[in-house]
């Protein structure tokens, strides 16, 4: 792939993305074996540097790294020196001095992975920066769509919810667009600002309009703590207008699938009847996440 870091989907070509997805297919086979481990990156060290609480992404990276036989260290904010006032750059330099080959970083500020890539020698993998990007989530979503639908090109994919604050959406939009999908964004205007029109997407404020004939519905988590910032009046009203219910999913194509990056708020953005239906591929996304992150580590590993 010829890259040292995975900071942004925008840095990847369609060929790069396809290579990652193809490589992940091979690793998914590994995960189905009785012994789910390969010696590919033995002797390498991966540091999960998480400045924000995260269970699923961190666990997924940890498993991916272990399946490749690396040594993994979890460095999370509550146990680190950061609470003692250490600067981000000092923390990063410390981790470099410990001998990390890969640093998987999550931070509440956009651009932190880019800053670390400037300051330290390890390969940096962006595991979510502020409201900016979450590239491995987009890659695992694309992998899941391709696995279920056989292709991404030509599909119509709706991303629904808090687009404005979603790093998942900001990575998925360029990823899916590069792979040839048509992307629709659905949500209240306060959470789907006009700037997104620059990204070759359709914007819909009505679920009934936006869900019609789509192949994939990608739900985003509504961050309840944002509700008091006045982006929408109440959770009750949000669910009434933008919640994914059985009636609404019926507007999509008969074989449409439903995705969610988790964790879900049942009864806020998605009704349990849909989340637990046969359309839902939510748990498969979790499994695929490991394979995709293995592929990313593997492909970057050759360049570290």
């Amino acid at each position: 792939m010829g890259k040292r870091h995975l900071l942004s989907i925008k840095d990847l070509s369609r060929e790069d993305i396809t290579l990652i997805l193809d490589t992940a297919e091979g690793f998914k086979d590994v995960l189905k074996r009785d012994i789910k481990k390969v010696p590919t990156l033995r002797g390498k060290t991966v540091v999960n540097l998480f400045f924000e609480p995260s269970t699923r992404t961190r666990t997924s990276f940890e498993l991916a790294a272990k399946r490749l036989s690396t040594d993994v260290i979890n460095f999370s904010v509550s146990t680190s020196a950061v609470v003692k006032g250490e600067s981000l750059i000092d923390t990063a330099l410390t981790i470099q001095a410990l001998g990390a080959d890969f640093v998987v970083v999550r931070h509440s500020s956009s651009g932190v992975p880019h800053l670390l890539a400037d300051k330290i020698n390890a390969s940096i993998i962006n595991a979510g920066d502020g409201i900016n990007e979450h590239p491995t989530q987009a890659l695992l979503d694309a992998f899941t769509i391709r696995e279920k639908k056989g292709r991404v090109e030509g599909l119509t994919i709706a991303i629904v919810g808090d687009i404005l604050h979603s790093r998942v959406a900001r990575s998925n939009i360029p990823c899916l667009t590069k792979l040839g999908a048509r992307v629709r964004l659905i949500g209240p205007p306060t959470l789907v600002p006009d700037e997104f029109r620059a990204d070759q997407v359709e914007i819909h404020y009505s679920m009934e309009e936006g869900l019609r004939d789509v192949d994939v519905v990608m739900m985003l988590r509504i961050q309840l703590e944002r509700q008091d910032r006045g982006f929408f009046p109440t959770v009750n009203e949000y669910f009434r207008l933008w919640g994914l219910t059985s009636e609404r999913i019926a507007l999509a194509r008969d074989d449409a699938i439903v995705m969610h990056p988790g964790p879900m708020n049942r009864g806020v953005e998605i009704d349990s009847a849909v989340a637990d239906s046969s359309r839902s591929v939510i748990l498969e996304q979790v499994t695929n996440g490991i394979a995709v992150r293995m592929a990313v580590l593997y492909l970057l590993g050759g360049k570290a």
């Binding site: 651009g111 502020g130 409201i131 900016n132 700037e195 997104f196």
Partner: peptide, 11 residues
């Protein structure tokens, strides 16, 4: 606030 903040994911 504009196209650059949108692209950088900054408020």
């Amino acid at each position: 606030e504009g196209i650059v903040s949108h692209e950088l994911g900054l408020r």
